[in-house]
Computed example of a mutant assay.
Amino acid sequence: MEQIMATQNTSSSTTPAAAKRGLAGIDKKIYDAVFNAVMSQRLPPGTKLTEAHFCDLFKVSRTIVRKALQRLAHAHIVELKPNHGATIASPTPEETREIFAARRGIEAAIIPLAIARANKTQIARLRKMAKDEHAAYESGDRATWISMSGEFHIALAELAGNSILQRFLAELVSRCSLIIALYEAPGSVACSHDEHDRLIDVIASGDIPLSLKMMEQHLLAIEAKLNLNDEEDKIDLAEILGLSPI
């Protein structure tokens, strides 16, 4: 099994979400290890994460572990429940449908605003993001690829200039990224950079109706590729995180 720490030693080792929240030191290491393991489909939904186990694996105090787990919960990667500890989030099929329906509505509101404000510089930035996303996919860095795909959509929200829509979309993208990482059917490409390229072309042309249609089809296609069948596998957390058990 590929070790997660090998991924972290690349130039994209610090996830965009972690960087934005100012994680540093060992709590960032824990955050990145879990984040990348989830995004690489090595930590399945429902996996229990005990504080004591993390303390042993990373040789740190419960305080540091709790800080990392709280950050992961804020990003919707884990769920924290009183008296039950932390588990990898397990969005239900119904919740998944609701999340994607909400996202389609938010992105439909964003598209016309983004088109009205788009200029050559901003279109060039979107094209660069799509290119970088493709490079991450081609390199096999699935965690970075999923993150960058979400960042592309958030960049459209930034272009729209509505901070409320941007905040709503950021949460929905975070939830969708988790769902894609957990339930994407093997071998499928959830969010194609080619689709992003075509969407950029239509946005640059100023065609609002076609842009709206393409975005809706894009998001529906992502949802259609999800495999929501329940599967339970025993896992070795130390092996998954690339650490030696005590």
Rank of each mutant, 00 (worst) to 15 (best):
E216Y: 06
A73P: 00
E2Q: 08
P45H: 07
H134F: 13
D201M: 09
R97A: 13
V189I: 12
S177H: 06
T50D: 12
I179S: 10
I64P: 05
E195C: 10
T87D: 00
E79Y: 08
E171K: 14
I179G: 07
K20P: 00
G187D: 06
F100D: 04
A114K: 04
L182H: 15
K59P: 00
Y137E: 10
R103Q: 12
L159V: 05
S177E: 11
L172Q: 14
S149Q: 07
S147K: 00
D236H: 09
L219M: 10
I123M: 13
K234F: 11
I77T: 09
V60D: 06
S90G: 02
L69K: 10
M39Q: 03
I203A: 03
E107A: 11
I110Y: 10
R103M: 12
E195W: 07
I154Q: 10
E133G: 07
N227A: 07
A6W: 08
G187Y: 02
N119A: 05
I4F: 01
S139C: 11
P186A: 08
T10L: 09
L228P: 01
A17V: 06
R117G: 03
R103N: 07
I208R: 14
A118H: 02
F54K: 01
A221T: 03
P82C: 03
A52H: 14
I110G: 06
E195Y: 08
A109F: 04
I222K: 11
A18I: 00
G22K: 04
K20T: 05
K48I: 11
